[in-house]
Design a protein around this nucleic acid. Structure first.
Lengths: 153, 153
DNA sequence: GCACATTCAATTGCGAACAATTAAATGTGA
DNA sequence: TCACATTTAATTGTTCGCAATTGAATGTGC
């Protein structure tokens, strides 16, 4: 017996899922970023870590993780790759030997200048105005924060 | 010389990146889905594939890939895991031997009933109304489609 | 009919992402 | 002080996600 589409199935239809909209948009962003970041020698998650470090240097792994919602299982190998690329240095904190502090190298600082053109390219690809993007961003962040609040409960 | 924060750095600040909003929201969704999908024995990408198949059965891998924006490098092993879990069957098409058709097993069909409670739980976790979520979804899909259009150019 | 291009899935290799565990350093209470 | 909990990275194992390649099947232009 062939199942016919029913109103009861609407909640399970792919195109009704906001999670899939977000999931597929994240992948679309990644694909747009790829050629831009290739020129910097970075992957997208590595770019995010560099954004954090360009704001503030010499921070423990944990701080980066809290900022990006990532744990050491993701960050440790990623940071080792950035170190291998001579963009960061990893040193144990002398005050607290548990912490590993991540500092930019000269190359890491210098890369910031090459990265300045990236946001502009993304803006162009989005075909949106800045106020539109800011409004969307704020909505998405608000949703994300509500979801993260549910996880902790 | 300590770098001080400047207006010129605004485009590179993490909190100004819509891509990071989307990226981190996708991960937040994943974490909310995880306990719900664990009960179904599915990962989130596997759940997406099942959503596609619950809409229409007996489709080639390529169709699933176009629907989810995923390629065979991702789907082939994922579908093999779904087959190992007795949720789908993979058979070469007789009309076109290049295609592999994915069909739901009885268990695969049955899982749909257990999945019906998932969207309701996600809605609750979002603390949004349905119209709000629909509006956000439509905006995000529109942005995604514009980004994907740029890639193909 | 035959060389050639195209399509489709599978494979390989690398980089995330995360759960779960481990180990070392630090903090706390009796 | 000393047993115990907590914090912090690192590690291991599984699953995505994608680029690049392979190989088989199909389509095409002459």
């Amino acid at each position: 017996m062939p199942r016919k589409s029913s109103a009861a199935d609407a909640p399970l239809r792919l195109d009704n899922q906001i999670c899939f909209a977000v999931y597929s948009a994240a992948h679309a962003f990644n694909r747009v970023y790829k050629p831009l970041l290739d020129r910097l020698g970075l992957t997208y998650p590595q770019y995010l870590v560099m954004l954090v470090l360009w704001e503030r240097d010499d921070v423990p792994v944990k701080d980066i993780g809290e900022r990006l919602f990532l744990d050491s299982g993701t960050l440790t190998p990623l940071l080792k790759r950035l170190e291998a690329a001579h963009l960061v240095k990893r040193t144990r904190s002398s005050e607290d030997e548990r912490q590993v502090l991540i500092a930019l190298t000269a190359q890491g600082h210098a890369l910031k200048e090459k990265a300045r053109s990236v946001p502009q390219s993304i803006l162009a690809a989005s075909h949106c105005t800045v106020p539109e993007l800011v409004a969307m961003k704020d909505e998405i962040v608000a949703l994300r924060d509500r979801l993260n609040a549910v996880i902790g409960e």
